Simulated scan of single mutants.
Amino acid sequence: MSEMNDKTADFGYRTVDAAEKPGLVRGVFTSVAARYDLMNDLMSGGVHRLWKASLIDELKPNSRMRLLDVAGGTGDVAFRFLDAGGGHVTVCDLTESMVAVGRDRAIDRGRLSGVDWTVGDAQALPIADAGVDAYTIAFGLRNVTDIDRALREARRVLKPGGLFLCLEFSRVVLPALDRLYDAYSFQVLPALGRWVAKDEESYRYLAESIRRFPDQQSLARRMQAVGFARVGCRNLSGGIAAIHRGRRL
Rank of each mutant, 00 (worst) to 15 (best):
A154C: 13
R212H: 08
I137R: 08
F81R: 04
G232R: 15
F169M: 13
L206C: 03
V32N: 10
V70I: 14
M65C: 12
D133L: 03
D6I: 01
G75K: 06
V196W: 05
D121N: 13
V89L: 00
A138T: 14
V77N: 01
G12S: 02
L55W: 01
V188K: 01
R211P: 08
D133S: 11
R211N: 08
R26D: 12
R179L: 06
R103S: 05
R14N: 10
R234V: 14
S170T: 06
R248F: 13
R230P: 11
R109M: 04
K7M: 00
L249R: 12
F228G: 02
L67N: 07
L50C: 13
L82K: 01
M39A: 09
G85N: 10
A100G: 03
H244I: 08
D108Y: 05
T30M: 14
K52H: 05
T74S: 10
L55D: 00
A134N: 07
D133Y: 10
G85F: 05
D57I: 10
R234F: 11
L59Y: 03
V144T: 13
R156E: 12
S237N: 12
A220G: 11
T136N: 09
V89S: 02
R155N: 08
V231Q: 09
S31V: 12
G239E: 07
A128R: 15
C233E: 13
T30L: 03
I127F: 03
V70Y: 07
R149C: 11
A191C: 09
I137K: 04
F169D: 00
V91I: 00
V231I: 09
A53Y: 09
V226Y: 07
A78C: 11
D148S: 14
G246W: 05
A84M: 01
P214C: 08
E200Q: 15
Y181P: 01
L24S: 08
M65L: 15
R26H: 11
E208T: 14
L158Q: 05
L236I: 06
I127V: 15
L189K: 04
A154Y: 00
S170D: 06
S218K: 13
L163A: 08
K60I: 04
G102P: 02
F79Y: 06
V91C: 02
R247A: 10
Y13R: 13
A220L: 15
A242I: 08
L55N: 00
Y13I: 15
R245C: 12
A128T: 15
L94P: 00
S237F: 12
R155G: 04
R142S: 13
I137F: 13
L59A: 09
A130Y: 04
R26Q: 15
N235R: 15
A138Y: 09
A84G: 03
L151Y: 07
Y184H: 03
L59F: 10
V70Q: 01
V226L: 06
S113W: 01
A134Y: 05
H48D: 11
I107K: 11
R152S: 14
S31R: 14
R152D: 07
R230W: 10
